[in-house]
């Protein structure tokens, strides 16, 4: 094999999806610098810290959605599971439940949504768009019902100021090594799932069913269980974001996480994750989430209207995918070396 003689850089570039991921990183730098030149505040430490914290939500959502997209499916229930998690955790705590137990129950509820998604899509072969549309409504409904159709009280009112602060600090306000906890939490989750996708049997199976579900089945892959695992990852990431949101607000908001599933799609797609399945790296999703947040942050810093922000973001998503399509059709033939 000639691979041994190649430099590390070119070997890295050979990894599938690496080019797309690196392109997103380069885009990130360009966007960041461009905004920085317009407003020096963009480069301030405070802004960087805020950026890292805000992008954490998109990173988590992006990781979850990427897992599902790599299997060739989609998860529309992400935003609702985020809302449901925020509401369940905040409701339980505002009624005085121990935060650890509340978190555990919230995770369990979220994972149930993941299993349901996985079985509807993997076992009963429902179109993922429809199946998760259903769970999207159901979980949002649960978010409304848990506290009787209203947002929760302050969680400190149930578990006391000390425990309430501890919960809020852990997920949102405290810093470790000068960086907000939220980012560290997202990073840990990212690294764990990065490893799962890149280095384990489960990860390989996820790519395989996204590339060719028939061939995967004939190679002995358990399609139902693998699909379910991808939805479980998505649900877990959503739960973490839900906890972050309830920590941020100190209470549960019934509409928390609205539209997050689409932010997840955007983060993945900008980073080169194929919505058709079978391709993509979480590294790209990382870049995608950062691009997304940097855009939002930068447009705010230059005082662009919300409408303008939406338009710019919409255009960027389409351009990112178009670039990918163009590059791919240009690269269809194997290069002869």
């Amino acid at each position: 094999m000639e691979g041994k003689k190649q430099s590390i850089v070119s070997r890295l570039l050979e990894i599938k999806g690496m080019r797309a991921a690196l392109t997103a990183f380069i885009g990130l730098i360009v966007i960041y610098v461009a905004f920085g030149l317009m407003n020096r505040q963009v480069f301030s430490t405070q802004n960087i810290l805020n950026l890292l914290r805000s992008m954490s939500k998109y990173l988590l959502i992006g990781v979850g959605q990427s897992f599902v997209m790599i299997t060739g499916n989609i998860d529309l229930s992400i935003g609702s599971v985020v809302g449901m998690s925020a509401m369940i955790s905040a409701t339980l705590m505002s009624h005085g439940m121990n935060p650890f137990l509340a978190i555990l129950i919230t995770i369990l509820c979220g994972l149930i949504a993941g299993v349901v998604n996985g079985y509807l899509v993997g076992k009963f072969k429902l179109p993922p768009f429809i199946a998760t549309l259903g769970t999207m409504f159901v979980t949002r409904g649960i978010a409304y019902i848990v506290n009787g159709n209203r947002n929760t009280d302050n969680i400190a009112s149930g578990i006391g100021k000390e425990a309430g602060d501890a919960f809020q600090n852990f997920f949102y306000y405290a810093k470790v090594l000068g960086v907000f906890n939220t980012f560290w939490i997202a990073l840990v989750v990212f690294v764990v799932f990065f490893f799962l996708l890149a280095k384990t049997q489960t990860g390989r199976h996820i790519y395989a069913i996204g590339s060719n579900v028939d061939a995967a089945r004939l190679s002995g892959v358990d399609v139902v269980w693998t699909t379910t695992k991808a939805y479980l990852v998505s649900a877990f990431c959503s739960v973490v974001v839900g906890l972050i949101l309830s920590a941020q607000a100190g209470m549960g908001n019934m509409d928390a996480g609205n539209m997050y599933e689409m932010y997840g799609v955007a983060a993945g797609v900008i980073g080169g994750v194929s919505p058709m399945g079978g391709a993509g790296l979480l590294l790209g999703t990382f870049a995608g989430a950062a691009v997304w947040q940097t855009l939002e942050n930068g447009l705010n810093m230059v005082h662009a209207q919300v409408g303008i922000q939406r338009i710019v973001i919409g255009v960027i998503v389409v351009l990112a995918v178009m670039l990918d399509v163009i590059l791919r059709s240009g690269n269809r033939k194997p290069k002869s070396k």
Partner: peptide, 22 residues
């Protein structure tokens, strides 16, 4: 249709049914 994951590398294709050993 049934044999290859065409979007995946040769490595991943050969490894796929043998991951239990790998």
């Amino acid at each position: 249709k049934d044999g290859l994951c065409t979007k995946l590398s040769v490595r991943h294709n050969i490894a796929l049914p043998n991951l239990d050993m790998i």
